[in-house]
Simulated assay, not measured.
Amino acid sequence: MKLWGIDLGGTKIECAVLDSDRNLEVVVRMRLPTESANGYDHILNQIKRLIDMVAEQVGERPNKVGFATPGVLEPDTHLMKNSNTICLNGQPLKADLERILGVPCQLANDANCFALAEALIGAGKEHPTAEVVFGVIMGTGVGGGLVVNNKIIAGHHGIGGEWGHNILEEGGEPCYCGKAGCVEQVISGPALERYYERVSGEKVSMKVILERFHLGNDEHANATIERLLEYYGRAISTLINVLDPGLIVIGGGVGNVELLYTAGYERIRKYIFNKGVVTTPILKPKLGDSAGVFGAALL
């Protein structure tokens, strides 16, 4: 049986077909640019075009397709919300996809798809007794996905796992969600770069900030990484206090910062409601940038 998944990103749309009869072997992977600046209908056409191209390669069409999407469907109206690909918001994406593709479609937030893939076929394989797995995305944005007993928990409002839009810093930077000081506006890559520019007067990449931190001669880089570690520890502790997951997997570019797994882990101890004892496994993803599209297929 072929499992079809689409990862609908802001810059690219990726399709993967997995063969469930061959240990989820990848049959085909293919990408097209999203070209979201051209609008909602253009995105739909790009998805249809990509499905047609992959179907020609595979030699058959899908009988259903899973989608990892930025944002989520509102459970009551079935319209998209909370997407940073703005033109998707307010649109009946699931209904339109089913109309143009002619098959049932299952949609889930991209962070939830990341968490599902890592729980089932990624880092979760090293921790098979973990009933609760939380997938963190720390990159251009900050998000999260929640999987319990191998099932995505979308929640009553469809916002289960939305860790990135809780207020972390009172009086912090305004967020596109309408609040200020959200986790995303504190410890995402762009937020940390803005902080460095604010304190140093120089605009550089997160990679350069880390290099300068490790050289040890830049007080502004030190302050930026200190900010990351302290707020990371505080934010992750709230996840553990509420969910107490058996595994946390951290994806995204900022998730590659090695200090998160050492000094950052120590910061969690300051805030956890467990007398400073933390044994939660916190791992990097095993699937790399495949997690989103694999999770979509696994839907």
Rank of each mutant, 00 (worst) to 15 (best):
V183G: 05
K207I: 12
I121Y: 01
L146R: 02
G144M: 02
G181M: 02
T85Q: 05
N112Q: 15
G181F: 02
H156N: 15
N149E: 13
G102P: 02
M80Y: 02
A108M: 15
G90R: 11
V148M: 03
E162K: 11
V204P: 00
L168S: 00
E184I: 08
K125R: 12
C105R: 09
L168A: 01
L120M: 11
L97D: 07
G144A: 04
I167R: 03
G160H: 08
I187F: 01
G164V: 05
G143C: 11
E131G: 12
V132F: 11
T129C: 04
K151Q: 14
A108F: 12
G135R: 06
Y195E: 04
G181I: 05
A111M: 10
S83V: 04
G145A: 09
N166S: 13
V204H: 02
P92G: 06
Y196F: 02
D76A: 12
P128N: 07
C105P: 06
W163E: 09
T85Y: 06
S200M: 11
D76W: 09
E202R: 13
A130G: 13
S200F: 05
L93A: 08
E211R: 06
I152V: 12
L116Q: 05
G124V: 12
Q106A: 13
G164N: 03
L93W: 06
K81Q: 14
I153F: 15
V148L: 03
D76S: 13
M80R: 02
N166T: 09
G141P: 02
S83W: 02
G201E: 03
Y176R: 15
I209Q: 00
I209T: 03
K94Q: 14
V204K: 04
C87P: 01
H165K: 09
V148H: 00
G139W: 11
I153M: 15
C105D: 07
A115M: 10
G145D: 05
I209E: 00
E184Q: 10
L107R: 12
V103F: 01
A115I: 08
D96K: 15
L79S: 03
D110W: 14
P128F: 03
E184S: 04
S83H: 05
E170F: 15
A180Q: 12
G161S: 04
V199K: 03
C113W: 14
V183H: 13
E170M: 15
R194V: 04
F134A: 10
P190F: 00
A111I: 07
A130H: 14
P190R: 02
V132Q: 12
G139M: 14
V103M: 06
C113A: 14
E169A: 09
K94W: 09
N112T: 13
S200I: 08
V186A: 00
E184H: 07
P190L: 03
E184L: 07
G90E: 07
D110G: 14
I209A: 01
K179V: 11
A154Y: 12
W163T: 10
G90V: 12
D110E: 14
H78D: 08
E197Q: 11
L101T: 04
S205H: 08
C113Q: 13
I209W: 00
N166Q: 14
I209K: 00
V204R: 03
Y195F: 15
I152M: 10
G172T: 05
P190V: 03
V136C: 05
N109D: 06
G172P: 00
G143R: 06
I137C: 01
Q91H: 13
V136H: 01
K94A: 11
S188R: 01
